[in-house]
Design a protein around this nucleic acid. Sequence first.
DNA 1: CTGAAAGCGCTAACAA
DNA 2: TTGTTAGCGCTTTCAG
Lengths: 335, 335
Amino acid sequence: MSQASKKSRPTMHDVAAKAGVSQMTVSRVLRGEGYFSQDVKTRVADAAKALGYIQNRLASVQRGMENPMIGVVLPTLKNTVFIDVLAGINDTLAEVGMRPVFGVSEYSEAEEETLVRDMLSWQPCGLILSGIEHTDGLRRTVAQSGVRVAEIMDVEGDAISASFGISQQAAGAEMARHFIAQGHRRVAYIGSQGGSDLRALKRYTAFKSELEAEGGCITYERIANRASSMPLGRELTAACLSDVTDCDAIYFSNDDLAAGGLMHCLSNKVSVPHGVALAGFNDLPFLSALPQRITTTHTPRYEIGALAARYVAGADDVPAKRHMLLAELVVGDTT
Amino acid sequence: MSQASKKSRPTMHDVAAKAGVSQMTVSRVLRGEGYFSQDVKTRVADAAKALGYIQNRLASVQRGMENPMIGVVLPTLKNTVFIDVLAGINDTLAEVGMRPVFGVSEYSEAEEETLVRDMLSWQPCGLILSGIEHTDGLRRTVAQSGVRVAEIMDVEGDAISASFGISQQAAGAEMARHFIAQGHRRVAYIGSQGGSDLRALKRYTAFKSELEAEGGCITYERIANRASSMPLGRELTAACLSDVTDCDAIYFSNDDLAAGGLMHCLSNKVSVPHGVALAGFNDLPFLSALPQRITTTHTPRYEIGALAARYVAGADDVPAKRHMLLAELVVGDTT
DNA sequence: CTGAAAGCGCTAACAA
DNA sequence: TTGTTAGCGCTTTCAG
């Protein structure tokens, strides 16, 4: 009777019965709070272990304890960048005994709102969202819920409370100045994700206006609808170089595409950077294995995830504000 | 008074007060169960929307409802393979309104057990674990918890209830036969993860014994401790080719390493496959962008995740048994 | 069709 | 140092 039946897992009552104490005492011992004798402590610990007791957090949280769970919404899993961010989030949360619940929005703000509503039903103590553009409903919902919210990747715009990312505009503009300095004035742009990647768009916009301000120009622009990948980059580059003969450089929205471009050039004996210069974005580790070092912008992806996680986990050394991390130009030999 | 205070989120009581019905009626309407008039239905729906009501799942689950949450433990986030699996899991769960909670074990069985204990405290309705080797404690814990458990990637060994994966042994043996058929008898093996990747080990063991049975031999073996990556593959290949001069092929534990190997050969004018043959494992999409098509084994990663998710989500068309998916040899031009 | 009562497993507050 | 009481927000059961 006091033993849990086959069907239901043991509760504190079962542990209490086995240890010969009250259920409340079990609660205290297991949390290590309040007072209890050494004897009781070991009896309870033994009983819990013997029964294979596992805490029911739903009940604790329901009673007012903080839920060590963080809702995380990423735009996609197809881009390594977010995997790195995820790793940073997960590692950091794990350090303090918290876990992420996941959702993928596929770059849709409406879907993001739905996901957040859903996650809030588990009463997480924090939320990590991507980007800084959200629906009004989302903003209202999270404001009402009172959970901590971190927005990652982007810091340009109106943050809900804390944002962690880089300046996409500065990164784009810096690359434009580098192009100009290297004498690349006629530039093609190749992107993916059909323009739903708002951060790539911000970068490109800044790149373009800086380039034009410095006397350069965009001679070709192609933003494919598919997800970014090396094969896609190779394909788009082939198309670009056969369409346009008057560009001396290609700016890709990320490294996967740029690496694909480099592969095209390698396989087709297009000299880089003399035939055409190439640059990507992110500085993914695999670049260092390629035959040529692609010029790119290093982004602190893991750090962004880690910092955001520290914030939503309630670390008091991470204030709620705009955290702009450094994105550094990495000059390779493709420009 | 009936309105939620600034601090706490609105409950069914608040909605009930606003709609002029009892809390129980709100519960019924919101779940669409039982009977209620059209009038009551709209009043409740309006009130809920006006208040921005979000269900408190902790309470429902506590009361006996199923928690649409699946605990997922992966060995690493550094290997694209698991990202694909994750995508399959997430997409499939999302279709039925479920979400994954994540943990990364870093290939440690002890860590896996800790993670599972932690996740079970949220009363998830299912668990997806990687591999088929687990601690006894883990097995006891999940047996007692009564949740559905799926084990992915590997099907050779004693599954808890349902396993989804490929035959690592068959994949390794098939590659060995391919090597022999192509005349590659003296083979080097390059791996990573310091041998904690049990699946790679199984593959290699089968590869080796099949190779030797057919008259081939392993002339070099290097399993680095670091995580698998293209740069690592390039580095290890360089070391291998400078150490050993008598191997005519290298079998890599995965595509990242193999691609790194190919890059080394490209950059150092080592002809492939005549100077040395190369083969990887997984058939990652980026291979199609490389200058040469690397021979590899295609693994149905997304499908494994998707199927496992269907099972733990409670789909009745996925029985609890050993699901061995097909891993197909993909012959490229590097062997 | 609608509501009142009971209780899931836990913890804060108080009593012993 | 330990136990008792109340109640978190919800759903099951049973009464109107």
